Simulated assay, not measured.
Amino acid sequence: MSLREVAVTGIATTPFGKHLDRSLGSLASEAVAAALDDAGVGPGDVEQAVFSNAAEGVLTGQEMIRGQVALKGTGLAGIPILNTENACASGSAAAHLAWLAVASGQVDVAIAVGAEKLFHPDKQRSFFAIESGTDRSLTREGEDVEGGSVMMGAYAAGARAYAEAHGDVREALAAVAVKNRAYAADNPHAQFRTPITADDVEASRPVADPLRLLTCSPLTDGAAALVFTAAQPGDRVRVAVSTLVSYREGSSVVERAASEAYRRSGLGPTEIDAFQLHDACAFAELAQYEQVGIAEPGKGAAAVLEGRTGPGGDAPVNTDGGLLSRGHALGATGLAQLAELGRQLRGTAGARQVADPRHVLSVNSGGWMGGDYATSVATLLVGG
């Protein structure tokens, strides 16, 4: 099938953090208005919307028509609205569908919107909502974290296995957390912006060995939106390719999604100027260095310790602070990742700007099948 070229012409994120006084719809509306303004279009120009949310059904009982409800005050009422729920990869799945709608020629303008409110008076409800993105038919042995997240238990088990094979990872995990917080210090939309040190990481509360509080992503509220349009001369951010894969036993979904993006774009890892990776915890980021080709197997820890993934490195990762410091508002996360890469290509990322980026890659993954993510989306953007 022949696909036409698509540009990202509107980019918006709300501040991420605790928004107890805001509704999901108000966060979504803020992101939509800002993205449309950035694209220079009005609600009447949009022909399709894709709305992303992961946890609202569990936390509030609002199911089935979340997008129609959240977007009812945005001027988008009446157009086709699709709802995506794909765990932590919901936002990038929404972007994938909006891109496909424009690339296929079905519409000329589409918007992907992601919004999430994870803060709840009963924190256990929030953890339960996140756990609903795991395969509930599997046993939890070795994965449960008392009073906390099954996912962090699974990541911790992976980190211990990695350390047994390649050596202690605690220093590298701290380095990931410190790097991402340093980037977030220059991101006005990030949840946590105060710089931290390795000592701060070590002093933070243990979660599941070797993970500590500052190496785990926080609960977050927030929204993000992207406008996709048929590409025109002068567009500064274009979609080279978007690939979406699902769990298959015996293979890494992250590796498969990234490899397919490289294959279809004709680019390789060394040609990527900035990455956004799914750092639900510091070990997740480290492991993905190897899965997307930044580092050779067993060399992920060295990549961050040598400064390769930080400012001035050859493979900067999570320049907006990532999930660890920007925050992980499930349904908005994938879109926030792409928003950051769009700003990098535009040259508007301020103090965290990467020098002359041309090709950038986001990998956003979600859900858990007991040994790997349930799904992963890789989106490769190029500068115009």
Results as ranks from 00 to 15, higher is better:
S365Y: 00
G61Q: 10
A203H: 10
R4C: 13
T348P: 02
G331K: 04
G114N: 07
A7M: 08
A225H: 03
D168V: 12
G327D: 03
L3K: 14
S90I: 04
G370W: 07
H328W: 09
R170N: 11
S242M: 10
Q48M: 13
P218Q: 12
E143I: 07
A349K: 00
G234I: 07
G222M: 01
V58L: 13
S376H: 05
F275Q: 00
P210F: 12
L338R: 03
G300F: 03
G384M: 08
A34C: 08
A378I: 04
G17M: 08
R256M: 12
N364Q: 05
A95C: 14
P210D: 12
Q353I: 07
E249C: 10
G293H: 09
V237P: 00
L361G: 00
L330Y: 11
D209V: 05
T229V: 14
R170Y: 09
E171L: 13
G310I: 02
A280H: 03
A230Y: 05
G158Q: 13
G10W: 05
G167E: 11
D168R: 14
R212E: 10
M152A: 10
A159V: 13
R181Y: 08
K72I: 07
G105R: 10
Y183A: 12
L36M: 11
G371D: 15
M152C: 09
T333Q: 04
E260L: 15
A230E: 15
I272H: 02
T13Y: 00
A103H: 03
L59K: 06
I79Y: 08
L323H: 04
S242H: 09
S246T: 15
G133K: 04
L36F: 03
T14C: 05
I79R: 15
T375F: 07
P357S: 09
S217E: 01
S149T: 08
Q124G: 05
R248G: 14
A240L: 13
L100P: 00
V377N: 07
I81W: 05
A303W: 01
W368V: 04
N318F: 04
A295N: 06
R160W: 06
P357A: 09
A261N: 06
A174E: 04
L380K: 06
H96E: 10
K299V: 03
Q353D: 10
L173N: 06
T14W: 01
Q353E: 13
G312P: 06
R66T: 15
N53A: 13
L71T: 04
N53R: 10
V178G: 06
R205T: 13
S137Q: 12
